[in-house]
């Protein structure tokens, strides 16, 4: 009787110790998650990560500048000449080749993030050699499609995720 007990004991003991240890590890890991997750954007930050913008008041040839996720967004209502200008240059040898069509959902509306792709300055609208945007920090010139044409910036102005809720309302984010 005592022999069987002695043979039996180590395995039962190991099993108990391993199970307990595993529970401890699982418990500690679960406790860690809330402590990490609290670093993620909170509910009030997420709530303003999507914005709806009324674009009905923007005249052709003018733009609206709104803030989205702490960055400026230019919503530009382009005239027919401006659209023609942008499409005309589609096949030139551009630093970051992209067709105008790929950068808009509706030709009339150009929506870009107003942050220079060089070092993060905010370019000024309607300025520069291509009358799109001009970044005063290091002299990057963007065209009416927001494409980089001249200067140190490596890529075109970023297009934020957006959709047309209706003809007069767009949702960014």
């Amino acid at each position: 009787m005592s022999d069987t007990l002695d043979d039996d004991k180590p395995t039962r003991r190991d099993f108990l110790y391993i199970t307990t240890g595993a529970f401890g590890v699982v418990g500690a890991a679960s406790v860690a998650w809330p402590l990490i997750d609290q670093l993620n954007p909170d509910a009030s930050v997420k709530a303003v990560s999507t914005i709806e913008v009324d674009i009905s008041s923007i005249e052709p040839g003018s733009f609206l500048k709104v803030a989205w996720r702490g960055k400026p967004i230019y919503i530009r209502r382009r005239t027919n000449e401006e659209i023609a200008d942008a499409e005309k240059d589609d096949n030139l040898n551009l630093p970051d080749p992209q067709k105008d069509m790929e950068r808009v959902q509706k030709k009339e509306w150009l929506v870009v993030v107003g942050v220079c792709t060089h070092l993060g300055c905010i370019p000024i609208a309607n300025q520069g050699e291509y009358e799109g945007w001009f970044c005063p920090c290091h002299g990057s010139h963007y065209d009416i499609s927001g494409r980089i044409r001249k200067g140190p910036a490596p890529t075109n102005l970023e297009i934020p995720p957006y959709e047309f809720v209706s003809d007069s309302l767009i949702k960014i984010g």
């Binding site: 809330p34 997750d37 609290q38 909170d42």
Partner: peptide
């Protein structure tokens, strides 16, 4: 109310 698991912490 807003911070993830903020109430718990």
């Amino acid at each position: 109310r807003n911070v993830n698991y903020g109430w718990l912490i």
